[in-house]
Amino acid sequence: MTAYAPGDRVRTRTADPAGHTRLPRYARGATGTVVQVAGSHPLADDRARGLDVPAQPVYHVRFAARDLFGDGDHGVTVELWHDHLDHDTEGRA
């Protein structure tokens, strides 16, 4: 796994998991920009299921409101785990 870096454009996954997830619904399938690497933690989605999983990078990812909601001139920054990002469809900036 290669971690993303500030400035990288990333796209969030669209999957709608049956259990807990820290990828908010409003930020699914959206493209944003990595602002900062915010440490490394086990994926909360897995921990909520009682799984003992290794840590992975966590990022502050900023989305333009229009890319989330279709309009708006503000930004929304969400903290996302590496596994919340879709690594197949989006290359590095």
Binding site: A27, G39, R62, H74, G75, V76, T77, E79
Partner: peptide, 12 residues
Amino acid sequence: TRIEVWDASAES
């Protein structure tokens, strides 16, 4: 004024 919203839904 640009508004930036921070969603504190994870570790930070």
